[in-house]
């Protein structure tokens, strides 16, 4: 297996707008993500960050360029159950308990799951244990409508981690939550990630979220959607709540904010 978990090579994605117009969502985007790292993608709305995530997930095909996930095409990666997706909304099924919801991905495409387990040597995912780690042990037999929005989103994260995917793709999973829930969930996400060692690509529009979670922050700019900066975040882990108040943390936040402003200005100039 290569050390590159995700490789995006000169990817271009254009959406038709109206009869003649078109919107360049991704314009010659290059990106490599090393295996086991946590990378955030940040940028103003319309910069193509969600499109980039969907292209890597195999939910959309690029108009030009190539994407590989651990040496496979996104479609092959999905077929081999190498991917996990956490969308913006929890996307839980209202008729299934939390436990059954997080266990359902293991029931589909069973052959790939079996092959994965044989190769890695460990047994099936223990969803009860994962739910306990996420603090959901008391509600795992409840329906999604009976638990809070923060718990629902945690269940969605457990559902994605439960497959032990090589690459976890997260599309602004915390954007609908309040500040407190958000910070608590960031910490739990880091704990789970630390334990399960997946590669994470995390789309966000929050500067502090990106800095806190990531090894690398990718800054994107709109019209056309492109990457303008890739910043290394050299902060010690684990990154508990006390880090959020430190001077280095704020320095990184200022740096990302500054580059984001640059991304805006380069748009205005062009």
């Amino acid at each position: 297996m290569s050390a590159e978990a995700i490789r995006v090579d000169r990817v271009r994605r254009v959406y038709p707008v109206g009869a003649r117009g078109s919107l360049v969502a991704l314009d010659d985007v290059d990106l490599t993500v090393a295996a086991g790292t946590f990378v955030s993608v940040i940028g103003p709305s319309g910069c193509g960050k969600s499109t980039l995530l969907r292209v890597i997930a195999g939910l959309e095909d690029p108009d030009a360029g190539a994407v590989s996930v651990c040496g496979n095409t996104p479609a092959q990666a999905a077929a081999a159950k190498m991917l996990g997706l956490v969308p913006q909304t929890p996307a839980l099924l209202p008729w299934l308990s939390v436990l059954k919801n997080v266990s359902l991905p293991a029931k589909v495409n069973r052959a790939a799951g079996r092959r994965r387990r044989e190769r890695s040597g460990n047994g099936g995912p223990d969803m009860v244990e994962l739910l306990r780690k996420a603090g959901l042990q008391d509600v795992m037999h409840k329906l999604p409508s009976q638990i809070s929005g923060g718990m629902q989103q945690r269940a969605a994260i457990v559902r994605a981690f439960g497959l032990h995917p090589d690459v976890l793709l997260m599309d602004e999973p915390f954007s609908a939550l309040d500040e407190f829930t958000r910070e608590a969930l960031q910490e739990q996400l880091l704990d789970l990630w630390d334990e399960l060692k997946a590669t994470v690509l995390f789309v966000t529009h929050s500067v502090s979220e990106a800095v806190r979670l990531s090894d690398k922050v990718v800054v994107m700019a709109p019209r056309p959607g492109r990457i303008t900066d890739v910043l290394d975040i050299d902060l010690p882990r684990p990154r508990g709540p006390e880090l959020l108040a430190s001077a280095e943390f704020h320095a990184y936040e200022d740096l990302v904010r500054d580059r984001l402003r640059g991304a805006f200005q380069s748009t205005a100039a062009s």
């Binding site: 969907r54 997930a57 029931k107 497959l163």
Partner: peptide, 26 residues
């Protein structure tokens, strides 16, 4: 079926029959 739900199960390559039985029919 809401699009995010479909996307979650498409990324684990759920077959059409599985999508029908586990998602669409309920």
């Amino acid at each position: 079926v809401p699009l995010p739900v479909l996307q979650v199960y498409r990324t684990v390559h759920a077959s059409r029959l599985e999508t029908l039985w586990y998602l669409r029919v309920p």
